[in-house]
Design a protein around this nucleic acid. Structure first.
Length: 482
RNA sequence: GGCCCCGUGGUCAAGCGGCCUAAGACACCGCCCUUUCACGGCGGUAACCCGGGUUCGAGUCCCGGCGGGGUCACCA
């Protein structure tokens, strides 16, 4: 059986779009699952869009996520070079070969002429399609223009009748009327191939067996197939992937800051969680499993479980999943990753980060939420005394005042400020007073934190705050209750 | 607009003619646990876009409508 070879062919724009990342993931999974090769190819035929350092972004993102290529620009391979601009000289002869066969032709129409005709067409409410104007130039006429140095492009010669059909492994049998096909440009004026052409040539030359890409190519695929046929090349198998959406009518976009891998990493999402979640947008394992390592994904991946309808990227669920990953991560690793976020509000406070991290790890869903969650440790927030009211704790403002007055001297008596001492001393005092635990501990926590939700109970918070700060906050809270 | 794709709860989704008075997950709500929250446990609200067929029987097949998306570049 033929070895499976798949490829991910991004353009170096400087950012990794999540949709692209997911395509890369699936492409990688498919290759690995079939014991095949995954190839990375950089598509930079558009010189105007070249961005410095953009290929490194692609390398780092992919590798960081565990999507490892077997052949690519930086590691080579038997089918190089793997950067399209370095293959520049390779395409023209193929285009000429097509011209020989009558499957393509030189076109001397200028951009301006085309724009004019397009505008005229659209004014009439019609769809512009190249009118094969230059197809009818004689060989001599073409040669004369070529000799005169007139700029040209090479266009493919699409059939205008009949239809072209193909089978997609996700969408099934698809067929398109040929009269809707446009004679797309293969070679641009600058001599560079268009994406469309380079893709076909490269995929063939690199022995790609399965083309996996976004469904935006669904309707241009017939043209590619016509090209393959013209060359007499074998058409690869197609796996078109649905678009990843933000909601039913919008794609993930740059403007909303939810489109790029880096957007999420900067907010404190874990790449493992991101990959895991991304795998599940538009695909399911056929059972209830949701958590996957890369190896497990390779095992479980199955094209037949790829969805045909667009998937919405649910940040909510990603966030939940991220929290699950964080809760399970190695503590030291968590501490290391959380420290810069702690520093944002606690730098220089001498806070016990290790203890803080223990309390926070199980409550962190995304690292960027940390500063808001612990800001109260740095500065006592203003709070409404109604926070003291809690029915289940049998507490209201009056009870709070009474119990806080009772507990203040108890805390003042604690010299060795450890959680254990705090706990033992306070609990003993509560028991001696005959009061309910909650009726004392609830207002105590409120008094020193100023908020209903905190990463830990009264003892933990008191410990983190330290003796002086705790007592200061408690006295101040008491004053406000008068 | 032409062509193409898609259409199960708010979201992800199982379902590939009878097992569906439709799974599971996120979110939401309630209860339990707990010094709060979270975690965990238990329970709940919530869906087959509409209309025609085909069939003994349709969420599942076909057609139409509607809705959403994609594509119509010397961008990739």
């Amino acid at each position: 059986m033929q070895e499976v070879r798949t490829r991910f062919a991004p353009s170096p724009t400087g950012f990794m779009h999540l949709g692209g990342l997911r395509s890369a993931l699936y492409t990688y999974l498919f290759a690995k699952q079939n014991g095949g090769k995954f190839i990375l190819r950089i598509e930079d035929t558009d010189q105007e869009r070249f961005v410095e350092g953009a290929t490194e972004v692609i390398y780092d993102t992919l590798r960081g996520c565990g999507i490892i290529w077997d052949e690519g620009p930086d590691i080579g391979g038997d089918y190089g070079p793997y950067i399209q601009s370095e293959r520049k000289s390779l395409y023209l002869p193929y285009a000429k070969q097509l011209v020989e066969k009558g499957a393509a032709y030189y076109c001397f129409c200028t951009k301006e002429e085309l724009d004019e005709r397009r505008a005229a067409c659209e004014a009439k409410g019609e769809v512009f399609k190249y009118d094969k104007h230059c197809l009818h130039l004689s060989k001599e006429e073409v040669q004369a223009k070529l000799d005169a140095g007139i700029p040209y492009v090479i266009r493919m010669n699409c059939p205008t009748t009949g239809e072209t059909a193909y089978d997609d492994m996700v969408f099934g049998h698809l067929s398109f009327p040929n009269d809707t096909l446009d004679d797309m440009i293969l070679i641009k004026t600058d001599g560079m191939p268009t994406y469309n052409f380079a893709n076909v040539v490269d995929d063939h030359l690199m022995g790609i067996t399965h083309v996996i890409r976004g469904m935006e190519y669904l309707s241009s695929t017939p043209k590619y197939n016509i090209l393959y046929d013209a060359f007499g090349w074998e058409i690869p198998k197609y796996i078109h992937l649905t678009t990843v959406m933000r909601d039913a009518q919008h794609k993930l976009s740059k403007r909303d800051g939810d489109a790029y891998y880096s957007d999420f990493i900067e907010k404190g999402y874990l790449k493992e969680a991101l990959i895991n979640y991304l795998a599940l947008v538009g695909w399911n394992p056929g059972d209830d499993r949701e958590f996957f390592t890369m190896d497990e994904l390779i095992q479980a991946f199955d094209v037949s479980h790829l969805n045909k309808s667009p998937g919405i990227f649910d940040v909510n669920k990603l966030t939940w999943m991220n929290g699950q990953y964080i809760a399970k991560m190695d503590f030291e690793e968590y501490l290391k990753m959380a420290t810069p976020w702690f520093d944002k509000v606690l730098a220089g406070k001498g806070m016990d980060y290790r203890r803080l991290a223990e309390l926070m790890q199980g409550r962190t869903e995304v690292f960027c939420q940390i500063p808001d969650m612990i800001a109260f440790l740095a500065k006592m927030p203003e709070f409404d005394p109604s926070l003291y009211v809690h029915k289940k704790m049998k507490c209201d403002e009056t009870v709070a005042k009474e119990n806080l007055e009772m507990i203040l001297p108890v805390l003042e008596s604690v010299v060795n400020w450890t959680e254990q001492n705090l706990h033992d001393t306070v609990m003993a005092a509560i028991e001696a007073s005959g009061k309910k635990n909650g009726a004392v501990l609830w207002p105590l926590r409120i008094a020193i934190s100023g908020q209903a939700n905190t990463p830990g109970g009264a003892f933990e918070i008191a410990y983190l705050l330290g003796r002086d700060e705790t007592l200061k906050r408690l006295r101040s809270a008491l004053e406000k209750l008068h």
